[in-house]
Design a protein around this nucleic acid. Structure first.
Length: 322
DNA sequence: GGTAGACCTGGACGC
DNA sequence: GCGTCCAGGTCTACC
């Protein structure tokens, strides 16, 4: 059957654009964000290997999804589940907003429905993307992920498009595991190539159970320990992944965090992880949310802008869209 | 537990 | 055009 516009409801408040632009993921392949039309295109490979292209846009209740593909009922159910995960539709930020309302630098969060972070369909894709953000600038991250998708992603079966033009889904674990270090190095992954291979092969061998981590209810420090065991994932990567998993107890301390907190709270004095965490400690389990959505007016650029490697203008763009 | 150096690449800069 | 330096997190070896 065809997938008629599928309407997915979210726990209010929810703003489609806020989730899309909550961080830089919307700029990474295989996603394509058509800002002018407000459409996010998500090539998606289903469990049965069927590749389809979803067109997602805002709806008063949440969002709508459309595709030209003919889908079986089980496939529609899978699409629905995956979209609910990607947009964290069931999340309830009531408690965070109650706290944020009392802090002038976070008072905007409720109105803009900020809190949800755009996720990938699988935790594997998120881990790979976080790996691609380490020790590199944002333009490099975009290049690495694009190369991976173009080289290993399964193309959409479209009779009107050649295999080179067709959108591609994010590569599967098995596809990455089947390649070799030299190929990955050739795609620019450099010293990250062995980490990526070890990750994919480790998942296939049962060494890393990402699905269990995705649904785990263990305390955040324990979950963090598991994430730190993933190859190429250190404190920064683990904190970023925890945020994507809805755990906000740890701040991903990168050079941008150091710079922002130093300038804003310590008069430009050198700071470390301890000082950064001390500033946001009072936000408890919402620590990284408070850091991420903090109004850094006066700072050179916010964490969100740093992700995008852009100047202050991206915040202006963000604010006009939301 | 803390620290130093290696890893890799693109971009900025000076010549 | 070429060479050099720097930025960016993680890992490993060493103390």
């Amino acid at each position: 059957m065809n997938l008629l516009p599928l309407i997915l409801s979210a726990h209010p408040p929810f703003l489609f654009h806020s989730v899309i632009q909550s961080h830089g993921w919307y700029q990474l392949a295989p996603l394509h964000w058509d800002g002018a039309r407000g459409i996010l295109r998500q090539p998606l490979q289903l469990d049965d290997a069927h590749v389809l292209l979803l067109e997602l846009c805002a709806h008063p209740a949440g969002l709508t999804a459309q595709t030209d593909a003919r889908l079986a009922e089980a496939e529609i159910a899978e699409v629905t589940t995956k979209l609910a995960w990607i947009f964290n539709l069931d999340a309830d930020y009531t408690e965070f907003y109650a706290l944020a309302d009392q802090e002038p630098r976070l008072a905007h969060c409720r109105g803009k429905a900020q809190g949800r972070l755009l996720r990938s369909p699988t935790l594997f894709e998120d881990v790979v993307k976080v790996l691609a953000t380490t020790n590199i600038q944002w333009s490099g991250t975009k290049r690495l992920v694009r190369q991976l998708v173009q080289h290993f992603g399964a193309p959409l079966a479209d009779p009107w498009l050649g295999a080179n033009e067709a959108p591609r889904a994010f590569p599967t674990v098995a596809t990455i595991a089947a390649t070799d270090e030299l190929t990955l190095r050739g795609l620019g992954w450099g010293y990250r190539a062995p980490y990526l291979l070890k990750l994919a092969r480790g998942i296939l061998e049962g060494l890393y159970d990402l699905e269990a981590l995705r649904t785990s209810s263990v305390p955040t420090p324990d979950l963090r320990k598991h994430l730190l065991k993933l190859p190429g994932i250190g404190p920064y990567g683990a904190a970023t992944l925890l945020g994507l998993l809805g755990r906000h107890d740890f701040i991903g301390v990168d050079t941008e965090a150091v710079s922002l907190v130093s300038k804003t709270f310590y008069n430009g004095q050198p700071v470390g992880e301890q000082e950064i965490n001390a500033i946001f400690d009072r936000w408890g389990r919402f620590k990284s949310l408070a850091y991420w959505f903090w109004d850094w007016s006066g700072a050179q650029q916010s964490p969100m802008e740093a992700w995008e490697g852009k100047s202050v203008s991206s915040r202006e763009l963000y604010e006009t869209k939301v």
